[in-house]
Amino acid sequence: MNSLELTQCIVNALLLSGTLALVAIGFSIVWGILNIINLAHGAFLMIGAYITYWLFTLYGVDPFLSLPISMILLFIGGYLVQRYLINFVIRAPLLVTFLLTFALEIIIMNLAVVFWKGDLRSVTPSYAGMGFALGEVQVPYVRLAAFILSLILTGLLHLFMTYTKMGNAIRATGMDIDAAKLQGVKIGHTYAVTFALGAALAAAAGSLISISFPIDPTMGGAYTLRAFVICVLGGLGSIPGVMMGALLYAFIEVFSGIWAPSLKDAIALLVLVLVLIVRPTGIAGKAFYH
């Protein structure tokens, strides 16, 4: 690998890390606050990607403009799923919620295959293939925009959690649920909003991914897996931790894709196992959201 290829890989990894952080943060808040490992996270992401695809294909809506639409729709969907489905088993052991979200993932994915077919599809706005060159390193516009939007959304989430009443209620609930109840926090509503936020962030990531990569109904599982690994790498608990985890994961994925493409997922999971052995709390791990 010469220095040009190396630089290109670093740029690619950096750009990828933004979107991956966005995928993982939604997964992480649901895990951290509700103690649910949401295996349907990737399915929400896939729906977000299809919302962008259909709005673009049927109505010519610019894919970046469809981002808020897919976020709002998945926010509402996520709220309802939590409030009227998962909420009934929220006190059950982790395995029960695990199975429920797993089933949800399969149902959503299969419905998507039935209604939208299993074909690979692409969102191709006029600027899709365009980019600029930094020296000889290529930077595609859509990936750069996805990277910047991911950082903006992550920043907005941080501001929401820190400065709004609802954000504080969510953090308080994650730290001490009974104490939060004693301050008047309605746990059912707070959990549903948290889950809805997770779904909306997954949708945003899905919309952004659909502009850079082909999509199909089964795309979600791979992202759920990535989100899981990133949360373990970064430690469950802080937005900066998740971002660091995403950055590390993106580098592993890009470089193993060059050197050993067929072992890409195996290498990522090997790193996961090593982290769990050496540092089970992750890189910046803390117990809950801060």
Partner: peptide, 15 residues
């Protein structure tokens, strides 16, 4: 039963 990861001000305002 304070919210250990939140600031003193955030804790008081949770009341």
């Amino acid at each position: 039963r304070l919210f250990a990861g939140m600031t003193v001000k955030e804790n008081i305002m949770m009341g």
